[in-house]
């Protein structure tokens, strides 16, 4: 017909992909959308009221119909009305938004942890089982997944619109976000914080798989060594076990079961031993001297990559006893006897 092919193509595109809302693919998405619709309704009502006032008055009081204006000073009652009503609505929005915020940023205790390292211009994902991915992320559905993220260079931001989650990825500091995917599928993954020339190339996909498929994927893509196993090797090769033997009177504190505990510091403060604490202590030991120990630990800044740090952190998190620490040591120095029954060791 007379319609030009370009226009036709455009119309076709418009009709087939005219999504107004992204898919809801996580447990958080319906909550976010609920607030969004509330806010949309608020906007619509606001615009309608203002529009009705402006248009209504313009018609009713235009010069042709009302040649003489009546001077009115104002009205305290009205002022109070349109101060208080918006205020109340905004406060509702505030509370609702805050609840959603805490829902998005406070992960459930049982979530599985995946590490993300951002660098110009790629996303690396490190699964606990040792699977590595670049610019993709495979996650199971129906299970809370927490991302512990860090940047090697500049600010990045990890955004999965279909899950309605996003968090800045900061150099030198872990940040976290979590989600629970509900629908298997392939979703957008964006870097949303401007990070230099190829910012728009720092994109990828998040693939949500059903638990079975996820298991298959995990088995197929494992590198054979889990993060904790890598970390154990690193722990020995960097000589950490020389001081952190786990024995009483050792130069370094016992690390078994440390993760998640509150640690008493030399300067009197207490610090929570979370991932960030473990990482920062390896890099900046002088800022984290535990009570009763001397600040003799050297810094490992510049000696371990972010991936290596992740391995070490995972290892320390998994470290429940010192049996293997001491076992690796005895093969070298054999100053301490290895316990006969693993698992019975006193920390």
């Amino acid at each position: 017909m007379g319609i030009s092919p370009v226009l036709w193509q455009f119309l076709n595109k418009w009709l087939t992909s005219s999504a107004l809302f992204p898919k809801e693919a996580s447990t958080i998405a319906p909550y976010a959308d609920a607030l969004y619709f509330f806010l949309l309704a608020m906007t619509l009502v606001g615009v309608l009221i203002v529009g009705a006032l402006v248009f209504g008055f313009s018609l009713r009081y235009r010069k042709e119909r009302n040649p003489e204006a009546t001077q009115i000073e104002g009205s305290t009652l009205l002022e109070a009305t349109w101060t208080i009503i918006p205020l109340v609505i905004f406060l509702v929005t505030f509370v609702w938004g805050a609840l959603l915020y805490f829902r998005i940023y406070n992960p459930p205790a049982n979530s599985m942890n995946i590490y993300i390292v951002g660098k110009q211009w790629m996303w690396k994902a490190e699964h606990p089982g040792g699977q590595h991915e670049i610019n993709t992320l495979h996650v199971p559905t129906g299970r809370p997944v927490q991302l512990t993220m860090i940047s090697q260079d500049v600010f990045h931001s990890y955004s999965i619109p279909e899950f309605r989650v996003k968090r800045e990825v900061i150099p030198g500091r872990y940040s976290t976000v979590w989600f629970n995917a509900t629908e298997p599928g392939v979703y957008h993954l964006f870097c949303t914080q401007y990070c230099g020339t190829l910012h728009s190339g720092m994109i990828g996909t998040v693939t949500a798989l059903s638990p079975d498929d996820y298991q298959k994927w995990t088995d197929a893509s494992t590198s054979g060594m889990s993060l904790a196993q890598n970390g154990e090797r690193l722990f020995a090769s960097l000589g950490c076990n020389q001081c952190h033997t786990g024995a009483a009177g050792a130069r370094g504190p016992n690390l078994a079961g440390l993760y998640g505990k509150k640690v008493q510091m030399e300067d009197g403060s207490t610090q929570l031993a979370n991932e960030a604490f473990l990482r920062d202590t390896i890099l900046n030991p002088s800022s984290h001297v535990p009570a009763g120990y001397k600040p003799i630990m050297p810094t490992y800044q510049g000696q371990i990559s972010e991936e290596g740090l992740i391995d070490l952190v995972e290892y320390l998190k998994s470290l429940k006893t010192n049996y293997r620490v001491q076992q690796t040591l005895t093969t070298a120095t054999s100053t301490e006897a290895a316990p006969t029954t693993p698992g019975m060791v006193k920390p």
Binding site: L35, L39, G97, K166
Partner: peptide
Amino acid sequence: AFGFIGLFTIGGLTGVFLGSLGMDIHLTET
């Protein structure tokens, strides 16, 4: 001025979206 009032009303109210913590997570940087 009418244009201002219309557009600023929309602009201002969408600012409330962004000031609301949980909504900001999805909307910011987009």
